[in-house]
Nucleic acid binder design. Structure first.
Lengths: 242, 242
DNA sequence: CGCCTGCTTGACCTCGCTCAAGGCCCGTGG
DNA sequence: CCACGGGCCTTGAGCGAGGTCAAGCAGGCG
C-alpha cells in the first residue's frame, strides 16, 4: 500500500530508476478515516495534497439548499486535490464515501520533485488531464443520458477504473457506497436510484450489495450505457477481464 | 490579436522578459473559420494545439442517437485541446460555435517552450486545471440546477469569463450562439431553452439578441443562478464592472 | 429493546420533452 | 422585384421520466 504513489505514477510513464527512487523516498503516513468525512472543503487553501491509499472518496459541491452534486470518484492511487498545487483556493469538497486510508504530501515536496524531474511533472499534469476528461464525460452523463443508461455508465466507469488499478477481479470490485451517494453522483433522487438499480438487477446486468459491485453481463451493461472507455485514457484499452 | 497567446499566459503568472520573448516569438498564422465547423474530432491524434484568437468555440461529444452535449465554451485566448499535449487521443469534438479566428501551435514547439521555461509549463498546467474546475461546475450545473438557474448560471459564467479577457463592457458581451447550441450546453431541449430565456428576459435579468448578451441586473441573475465565481480562479475575483 | 441508517414500495405530481405548426428574417434565383 | 426556401425563433398541447411525500422494512449498534 505504501507504494501506491510510485505505482500510480509508473503506470503513466516509464520512470527512470532515479525518478522512481525519488518518488519511493517520499515519506507517507497512512491515516484511516471513516466514511462520510470531509478531507478538505471548498474555500480551503491547502498546503498539501491528499493521496488516497484505500477506499472511495469523492469531489463534490454543496448547493445553497443543501443538495450535493458529486463530480468525481477517487480510488486508491488518486490525488483528488492535486489541482491545489497550482490553484490556491479549493473549489470543491473532498470527502470520503467509504472508509478510507489516505496520506498527505506537502506541496513543497511535490514542487521540488517536479522541478528535479520534469518528466514526473508531466506525468502529474497528465493525471490531472485524465481527471478533466472524466469530468467532461460526467457532464455528458448527467446532461444527456436517461437514468438507466446514466447509472449503467457510472458503474461501467467504476469497474473499468478499478480494474485498471488492479482493484477488480472477474468483473467484481469493492464499491461501498449508499444509494444516496449514487444519487449525488448521478443527479437522481434516492428513490429513483433505487428503482434504477433494481431494473439493472432484474435485467441481470449488475449485482450490487454489501459494498460489492459485480457486472455479470459487461457487454450488455456497456451497450446500455453507451460506454466507450477511451475517455479514461488507460494505457491499454483493456476491458475488465473476461 | 496576434499577442493573445502571450497575453493569456501573462495573465496567469508574471512571466520574465525572457519567457515573454520566447512566447512572443511563436509564429502564429491566424485562420478564419465559419460557425458550426469542426476544428478537431473525437478520436483524432493531433500534433498541434488550437488557439482561439476570436469567436466562440466548444468542446462537446456526440451520442449514439445524434444528440450533442457541450462540456465547455472557449473564447479568445483559450486552447481547447491543450490536453492533447499529454493525452494522445482526443476524447471530444472541438467545434466553432460562432465565426472564429484560430491558430495552430505545434506540440513540438510547446514542448520545447515548456522544457526551456518550467514556469511557463506550470502556467499552462494551471490553465488546464482551471478548465477542469469549470467542467466540475458544469457537472453541478446540469446535475443539480433546474432549467432557469441553469441557464442563468451559464450566462453568468460567459459574461464573467469574457470580462476577465477584456471582451465585455458594461455587462455586455458578444455571445453569438443559437438556442439549439445553448440546449446542447445545458442539456435542455430547444423549446425549453426558448421558454427559459423568455422568462429571464421578462424578469429583466438579461437581454439576448443579435449575438449580444447583456445582463442589466447582475445581482439578480447571479442570485437566481447561485453563481459564485470562485471556481473560475480569476486572479482578481472581479465581477463585471458596475 | 429501541433507535438510526439505509433500502424499498406506492401514490401523486410536475418540470421539461416531444410533436406540430406558424412566424420572421435573410439569401438566392427567376 | 418578388417568390421561394431554409435557418432560427416562438407558441400551443399533450405526455412521460423522474421528483416528492409518505410509509414500511431490515439490519446493526448502543
Amino acid at each position: 500500500m505504501l507504494n501506491t504513489f510510485a505505482e500510480k505514477l509508473s503506470k503513466h510513464c516509464d520512470l527512470t530508476a532515479r525518478e522512481l527512487d525519488s518518488v519511493r523516498a517520499v515519506n507517507i503516513q497512512p491515516l484511516a478515516i471513516g466514511a462520510g468525512h470531509n478531507l478538505a472543503l471548498e474555500g480551503d487553501r491547502p498546503l498539501r495534497c491528499i493521496l488516497v491509499l484505500a477506499g472511495l472518496a469523492s469531489t463534490s459541491k454543496l448547493n445553497r439548499d443543501g443538495n450535493r452534486q458529486t463530480a468525481a470518484f477517487h480510488m486508491a492511487g488518486d490525488m483528488p486535490d492535486l489541482m491545489t498545487l497550482h490553484l490556491e483556493v479549493l473549489d470543491s469538497d473532498i470527502r470520503t464515501i467509504s472508509d478510507c486510508t489516505v496520506a498527505f504530501i506537502e506541496h513543497d515536496l511535490l514542487r521540488s520533485l517536479c522541478e528535479k524531474h520534469p518528466r514526473l511533472a508531466a506525468t502529474l499534469w497528465r493525471t490531472t488531464l485524465i481527471d478533466a476528461s472524466i469530468y467532461r464525460e460526467w457532464v455528458v452523463n448527467v446532461g444527456l443520458r436517461p437514468a438507466l443508461s446514466r447509472m449503467a455508465h457510472l458503474l461501467c466507469e467504476v469497474l473499468c477504473r478499478m480494474d485498471d488499478r488492479g482493484l477488480a477481479t472477474e468483473q467484481v470490485c469493492e464499491f461501498d457506497i449508499t444509494q444516496a451517494a449514487l444519487g449525488d453522483a448521478t443527479g437522481l433522487s434516492v428513490v429513483h436510484v433505487n428503482r434504477t438499480i433494481q431494473t439493472l438487477r432484474k435485467r441481470g446486468l449488475v449485482t450490487f450489495a454489501n459494498g460489492k459491485l459485480s457486472i455479470p453481463d459487461w457487454e450488455g451493461l456497456a451497450s446500455l450505457a453507451g460506454f466507450r472507455p477511451e475517455y479514461l485514457h488507460l494505457n491499454r484499452e483493456r476491458e475488465p477481464a473476461d
